[in-house]
């Protein structure tokens, strides 16, 4: 569906500005938790991007953010720049965001097609991102720190016994971040609902532009009208 003929100047501007928003959200004050994984507004920005832009543009924005970061701009969390991010245990979460953005965006677009872009459905869509991000983040974190993802070593009595090294990747990679990430997704759904109220037609316009390649003549005036109102 997403031929580049549907890739309007408006989409390009939205993709670029939201990539900039994701980058800027990492520059705000943040907290570094255990094992050096920072808690920032990054997840919030990625989920808002997905909920506002829809699947393809959200994927493009996230990929653009990662590409600019890899090219050497210090826009990854904690001011990391370039390929040094792959030395951090947290780069799996970044990969997870790249996968989660189109999935969440797809759900948001289906919601837009049904016309239910309110808080609760958007919250449901945003919550999908958390298991996806963790599914990529936890294994990378565990392998970097030399932990097992699921199973404890044989000589352990209980879960979370830190002193004897009895701790799984799930515990280290999930538990410290879950409250913050849940809070960020709640906020993201709130913000996305407000944006869809303020600028209706953001996701619908994308659909028209994408299907405009099929019936270009019929949809052209409607498309222009949508752009003018937006």
């Amino acid at each position: 569906m997403f031929q580049h003929r549907g890739f309007t100047a408006q989409s390009i501007a939205l993709v670029a500005v939201f990539a900039g928003l994701i980058a800027a959200s990492t520059l705000t004050p943040e907290i570094t938790l255990a094992a050096g994984v920072p808690l920032s507004l990054q997840t919030f920005a990625v989920v808002v991007t997905a909920l506002v832009l829809g699947p393809w543009r959200a994927l493009a924005a996230t990929a653009l953010y990662i590409a600019v970061g890899l090219a050497g701009a210090p826009i990854f969390s904690n001011g990391v720049a370039g390929f040094a991010i792959f030395a951090r245990p947290s780069w799996g979460y970044l990969l997870g965001m790249l996968v989660a953005a189109p999935v969440v965006g797809l759900i948001a677009q289906l919601l837009a097609r049904r016309g239910s872009l309110t808080y609760v459905p958007l919250l449901g869509a945003g919550l999908v991102s958390i298991p996806i991000i963790y599914a990529f983040g936890v294994p990378v974190l565990a392998s970097k720190l030399g932990l097992n993802v699921f199973t404890l070593p044989a000589d352990c009595e209980g879960v979370g016994d830190f002193a004897s090294g009895c701790v799984t990747g799930i515990t280290v990679g999930t538990v410290p971040f879950l409250p913050g990430d849940l809070l960020k997704v709640f906020l993201a759904a709130l913000v996305a609902a407000a944006i869809h109220r303020a600028y209706p037609g953001l996701l619908g316009a994308a659909r028209r532009a994408a299907s405009g390649s099929v019936h270009a003549d019929e949809d052209a005036p409607e498309d222009e009208a949508a752009r003018a109102t937006a």
Partner: peptide
């Protein structure tokens, strides 16, 4: 903090898109 900043960001993006469209930049495919 977050709602005004996000909606102003969208507004900025839409204005930028109109400016690009008016100049005919990045509309090669179209």
């Amino acid at each position: 903090v977050l709602i005004p900043s996000a909606s102003r960001t969208v507004g900025f993006a839409l204005q930028l898109g109109q400016a690009l469209h008016a100049r005919g930049i990045a509309e090669h495919g179209r």
